[in-house]
Design a protein around this nucleic acid. Structure first.
Lengths: 240, 240
DNA sequence: GAGTGGTCTAGACCACCCC
DNA sequence: GGGTGGTCTAGACCACTCC
């Protein structure tokens, strides 16, 4: 079950194995896992390696430890919120919908103050301003404006915008996306949103402002979105 | 600097030490940390112990690792969002405000279906229903309704509600709070909210539904809140 | 080639929990 | 007292980066 000669790390093999057992119900919520020493002797590996696997499962909320007692499978949650930072395309896919775009404008601008602060650049740095209607299964879901420094990604084309930008940054440019900070507010639609989202005056929208950073802390993008409140809700999981 | 005889774990001492150096600017964003082997020899501790400290800093976003190169201090974020699951009282304190309550009603009910599902109980289990206006610096911030199984916390009193419930659960009952799932939506106020939040008809509100769980996965509470959009915004940080 | 983080070992002692 | 997780050691080899 564990291949010591595989290039896949042992701790990762064990982690996936236990995760599968939980997903398939072999290990039920509340069940105690074999002890760390049992895993170690069963697979003839070190206990520290077992701990490395289990620590990741603890961090991901699959199991929890009780000092002096054992490690147990956590109870399943009703709704499984999205894990981690995702693009609109990835988010919709996770919800079982297909994401498409309608480009409203795509230009290079001299950034206003709010954008220079967010991207940590000065006002002489050219910035892409990309405004799109984001659709899910063909219906307008959000109006989104993205700001990215042209120096960071010199070759954005309209063609490129049809794919996932995160995918391009990570797999074609080889830059690693680290984290994102999101500010979530409630508001009612403005005239621009009424037009593009096809809703009535006074309708509520969820405003999400996202600041995305690369692993080294460089700001990647600033995204301001207005989501239709009747079609979208945001779900997150937080650890105490 | 590192006290090996202290009951405080060595990895934690080192973690706090590095964190302090970052906070105080001794280690600037982009700076490379001493290598793991350097820390180990400097403090005469094992490299695995150093790794344990640094791994926590990586998970908390203070530093990042680059394979074959080194460990570096992450860039500072503009806004520092709230870390982890917090109560309203704790949340307001972090924002530099003082939280108070205005109790609207406090009763034991036979729970409706939505509550039984969230708390994983049946309809014969008595449940507290606590509705409060939450104030920050004396101004209405949110209208909040909390549902908790009476079996889980048998002795809730009006007096108790003036303190932090999380604090009571953790420190007086000795139950450990694990995580919470939050569903965030945008809406406009209903009549009840107009009255208690003192806002105009048509005003936007941020609806937050929180499901809180103990470490063993037992549902602790279901909280439905309506926050005044002009006074509250929600901020989170997500890892890729 | 020298230095870095990534993985792994085979032990050890401790505090804690349950019987 | 026996089992559990929590912490820690003193090494080891690997892949990777940079020069």
């Amino acid at each position: 079950m564990i291949d010591k000669n595989s290039p896949i790390p042992i701790y990762y093999q064990l982690e996936e194995k236990i995760k599968t057992q939980i997903d398939q119900g072999e290990l039920q919520p509340g069940d105690m896992l074999p002890s760390e020493r049992e895993y170690a002797s069963q697979y003839a590996i070190s206990r520290m390696t077992v701990r490395q696997a289990i620590t990741k499962l603890v961090n991901d909320g699959y199991v929890y430890r009780k000092k002096g007692t054992g490690t147990f499978v956590s109870a399943k949650k009703i709704d499984q919120p999205l894990q981690g930072l995702t693009s609109f395309t990835e988010d919709m896919k996770a919800r079982g919908m297909v994401a498409t775009n309608r480009l409203i404008h795509f230009k290079v601008i001299s950034p206003p103050l709010s954008v220079t602060k967010a991207l940590n650049i000065d006002s002489s740095t050219p910035v892409y301003e990309i405004q799109r209607v984001r659709l899910a299964d063909g219906l307008p879901m959000a109006l989104e404006t993205t700001y990215i420094s042209k120096h960071l990604i010199p070759n954005i084309t309209e063609k490129l915008l049809e794919q996932s930008l995160y995918d391009y940054v990570e797999n074609s440019l080889g830059k690693e996306i680290g984290e994102g900070t999101q500010i979530i507010e409630s508001s009612t639609v403005n005239q621009n949103e009424i037009t593009h989202l096809n809703v009535k005056k006074g309708s509520p929208v969820l405003l999400i402002e996202r600041h995305t950073y690369l692993k080294d802390g460089t700001p990647l993008e600033l995204v301001k979105s207005s989501y239709r409140a009747d079609r979208y809700r945001f779900m997150i999981n937080m650890q105490r």
